[in-house]
C-alpha cells in the first residue's frame, strides 16, 4: 500500500467513530475509494476499529457490495430482478458473457471490464435493465447490450 493510499485510508477512518459499529460504513467507503477491498486495508480496518480480522473478513464476504478482487475500469451490471428475469435478462447476460469472454463476477484480463449481476436495482418498469458505470439503460434489447458497453 502506497503512502497515498494510506492517507486515503486515514481520511476514511477519521469520518467514523472508532468502534465495531462503524465497520460496514468504513468498508463501503474503502470499496468506493479503491473499487475493491485491498487486503491491507482490511487489516488496517481491523486494527483501527479494534475488531478481530476474522470479523472484518466475514462482513466483507457476506455482503454483495464488497469485492475482494480488483475490478475493471468499466463495471457492467445486469439486473436479475424478477421483472428483468421474465423480460429476458438472461439474454443480455448471454451476449455480454460471450462478447466480453467473462462470467459474472469476473474481470477481463486487460482489467477493462467487470461483469456483475445484481438483484434488482428498482428500475423494474424499464426491465430488462443494465447499468454501465452507474449509467442506467432500460428496455435493453439483447443485440444492444454489447454496444452499450463498448460505447462507454
Amino acid at each position: 500500500m502506497t503512502r497515498q493510499d494510506l492517507t486515503k485510508l486515514t481520511a476514511i477512518f477519521d469520518h467514523y467513530p472508532t468502534d465495531a459499529g462503524s465497520l460496514i460504513g468504513v468498508l463501503q467507503d474503502i470499496q468506493r475509494e479503491f473499487h475493491y477491498l485491498p487486503r491491507e486495508a482490511m487489516t488496517k480496518t481491523a486494527e483501527t476499529l479494534g475488531v478481530p480480522l476474522s470479523k472484518v473478513y466475514s462482513v466483507a464476504t457476506f455482503y454483495n457490495a464488497f469485492s475482494l478482487t480488483p475490478r475493471g475500469d468499466t463495471i457492467v451490471r445486469v439486473c436479475k430482478g424478477t421483472a428483468c428475469h421474465i423480460k429476458g435478462a438472461d439474454l443480455l447476460l448471454d451476449q455480454l458473457e460471450s462478447g466480453l469472454g467473462i462470467k459474472p463476477g469476473e474481470t477481463t484480463e486487460d482489467m477493462k471490464y467487470t461483469l456483475e449481476v445484481v438483484n434488482c436495482v428498482g428500475a423494474c418498469a424499464m426491465a430488462p435493465v443494465m447499468i454501465v458505470n452507474n449509467k442506467y439503460h432500460g428496455n435493453v434489447a439483447c443485440n444492444r447490450a454489447l454496444k452499450l458497453v463498448k460505447k462507454d
Binding site: 478481530p52 476474522s54 473478513y57 464476504t61 457476506f62
Partner: peptide, 10 residues
C-alpha cells in the same frame, strides 16, 4: 476473546 475464525461468505 480471540475470534480467530469466522463464518465466511453466505
Amino acid at each position: 476473546g480471540k475470534s480467530a475464525i469466522s463464518a465466511v461468505m453466505r
